[in-house]
């Protein structure tokens, strides 16, 4: 689904990615692990189209309907409409904007893009509540202002809710597990697990092995100094848990 080749990128003149190669196929779940400052968040933000990054070289191709498109040519909201989703490590608060209104607008933009039916306020509320209940999360979040006065756990849950409602094809989940207590972690993890299917690819970015106990992953990559230094199956994550990142790269 996504083909990243020899990607070099910088932000404010400082290199963050130094030759990333990564292929994620439909139906796969990958985990990207690594120490602080390794470039994990940068990678997901570049995929989502964050304008602060400068791509020095390399390519990212995104496959839709068996056709490969140059992702770097696509605008931020265009990428989202085409099924790319990045959950935020620190979801942004927007005062005054109701979560429901935000979700409905995003859902309807997507519907418009795909030529499917837009939902009015009542139908959407019903649809959203169903989705949220299926995730085992609290529908009260819908009535509040977008992320405003949400606890850390609620913000992360709200990202998963957005993912469930927008139903993207490629999801980069940036430290969705950090700052969660064990119950919240289970809720979020089972949300992710239930979201996997053969048409969708999920990339979990994390510091910790913890979340991988709840979500089955096909591949684990270790990112260090802007490069993938090691790839393997889930046993690699256990190695890291034992020995840390020091001996890699």
């Amino acid at each position: 689904m996504i083909y990243i080749e020899d990607l070099h990128a910088e932000i404010e003149g400082k290199s963050v990615l130094n030759g990333i190669n990564l292929v994620v196929k439909a139906g796969e779940v990958h985990a990207i692990m690594g120490p602080n400052g390794a470039g994990k968040s940068s990678l997901s933000r570049i995929i989502a189209g964050h304008p602060a990054y400068n791509i020095r070289s390399g390519s990212i191709e995104y496959e839709i309907n068996l056709k490969k498109k140059n992702l770097l040519d696509m605008g931020v909201h265009e990428r989202a409409l085409n099924g790319i989703f990045m959950s935020f490590q620190y979801p942004v608060e927007v005062n005054g904007l109701s979560n429901m209104e935000f979700l409905r607008s995003a859902f309807n933009e997507l519907s418009k893009f795909h030529g499917s039916e837009e939902l009015d306020a009542l139908d959407f509320a019903e649809f959203a509540e169903k989705k949220i209940k299926a995730l085992g999360m609290n529908t009260d979040l819908l009535e509040r202002e977008l992320n405003v006065a949400f606890s850390g756990g609620e913000k992360k849950q709200n990202e998963i809710i957005q993912m469930a409602i927008l139903s993207p094809r490629l999801c980069f989940l940036d430290e969705t597990d950090s700052g969660l207590d064990i119950d919240a972690l289970r809720t979020v993890a089972s949300g992710i697990e239930s979201f996997t299917n053969k048409h969708r690819a999920i990339v979990i970015i994390t510091h910790y092995h913890r979340i991988l106990e709840y979500v089955n992953v096909d591949k684990v990559h270790i990112l260090k100094d802007g490069r993938i230094v090691s790839s393997g199956d889930s046993s690699l994550a256990k190695e890291i848990e034992k020995h840390g990142y020091k001996n890699l790269g």
Partner: peptide, 27 residues
Amino acid sequence: SEEQLLYLEMRGLSRELAVSLIINGFC
């Protein structure tokens, strides 16, 4: 903020729509 607009854009909203949602929320 630029971050607010980006957040909404990354959910598929055009920049114009993002501005309008924020303004309407404020008002």
